[in-house]
């Protein structure tokens, strides 16, 4: 054929074919996506500090291991209340003249997804400790230490964020470990990462590939009566509580209180314990401990899951107090006055 002997025709044909397909599959959809998605009403752009923090996040290449996308599949439920939609990314624009837009969706989850980390882990203390050396709070972590985001000072100024690093991880540092501006910005950025509730009337995308009722029913008898209960307290504790209170329940001195022998946990009345899990706690800030976030509410824990966690805490590390039932937990949660429905009425 003539085309195969004429380099102009051949290469022009190949190039046109490729460019045509490129328009169809990349440029066209990209334009459409950019122009047809507006930021959600509840979202607000990053403030100056958070923007600086995002720049640190980009510079350190955090996206190599942390995704920022909750996919519409059941296994991603742990990372957010709802799957992400295009509008979630709509207010992310070009960083500056040198650098491209950074949606930071990522392609590998060597570490946890960060879409909703601001809700899941709002504690400054935890973030600083974790950045200084991730293994000081999560022993099994393989995340790098970001020591260079911290200064060592002999005396801390009143505004300085001093980090109480456990002695094992101080490596002989005697002065005060103080977060630099970059670290402060980075933590501010991380804490700003929150999923926004979709406005009323907008259909919420569902999580796909969940276990259907039929599958659950089929799976249940095969396990037999002796199998584990449906809600595994140890696993739920590991997912929701362990990063602060640690696997041994002892917490970290000066940062996160111990649950081992804790008055709250040993109390036969579970009301305080359940309330702290659902609504957070700031009663021991004066002792140097951080503020506990409303883990149960933030992570959408069901009463059954809360009960499993409570019972796990009550029966481990030498603790041996009265077990709670799901009904008790439900009653306590009901007594809060259902804040979500109130908000909806307003």
């Amino acid at each position: 054929m003539e085309i195969y002997n004429n380099h102009k025709k051949l290469f022009t044909a190949a190039l046109c074919f490729f460019v045509l397909l490129t328009f169809f599959v990349a440029i066209g959809p990209a334009f459409t996506s950019q122009n047809h998605n507006a930021p959600l009403p509840g979202s607000k752009p990053l403030n100056a500090l958070e923007t600086e923090g995002k720049a640190v996040f980009i510079a350190e290449g955090c996206v190599a291991c942390h995704t920022q996308q909750v996919r519409n599949v059941d296994m991603d439920k742990v990372w957010g209340k709802r799957p992400n939609i295009a509008a979630d990314y709509a207010n992310i624009t070009r960083t500056d003249v040198w650098r491209n837009t950074a949606t930071l969706m990522g392609s590998e989850r060597t570490g946890p997804d960060l879409t909703n980390v601001g809700t899941r882990q709002p504690s400054n203390d935890w973030h600083y400790l974790h950045l200084f050396n991730p293994r000081s709070v999560v022993a099994e972590s393989v995340m790098p230490s970001y020591e260079w985001l911290f200064d060592i000072k002999d005396y801390a100024w009143p505004n300085d964020e001093v980090v109480n690093v456990p002695d094992d991880f101080k490596k002989g540092i005697t002065g005060k470990i103080v977060a630099t501006h970059k670290a402060v910005a980075l933590v501010a950025y991380l804490r700003s990462l929150k999923e926004i509730t979709l406005p009323d009337g907008k259909p919420v995308p569902i999580f796909l590939y969940g276990k259907s009722d039929a599958e659950k029913a089929a799976a249940a008898p095969s396990k037999g009566p002796a199998a584990k209960p449906e809600f595994d307290g140890a696993a739920l504790y590991a997912s929701n509580c362990q990063s602060c209170h640690q696997g041994n329940g002892e917490g970290l001195v000066g940062a996160f209180p111990s649950l081992k022998g804790s008055k709250v946990v040993l109390d036969d009345n579970p009301e305080v314990q359940v309330t702290i899990i659902m609504k957070g706690y700031n009663g021991r800030v004066s002792e140097g401990y951080g503020v506990m976030p409303a883990v149960g509410t933030n992570n959408n824990l069901k009463p059954e899951e809360v009960a499993a966690i409570v019972n796990h805490e009550r029966s481990n590390w030498g603790n041996n107090s009265k077990q709670v039932t799901v009904d008790e937990v439900k009653k306590i949660i009901a007594s809060f006055g259902k804040p979500e429905t109130i908000a909806a009425k307003k």
């Binding site: 959809p29 990209a30 709509a90 949606t103």
Partner: peptide, 18 residues
């Protein structure tokens, strides 16, 4: 295509990235 900025805001960036 990968470096031109005109269509890369929001998810446009992700589509181009893929």
């Amino acid at each position: 295509v990968g470096y031109l900025p005109f269509y890369q805001n929001g998810l446009g960036e992700t589509i181009i990235q893929g």
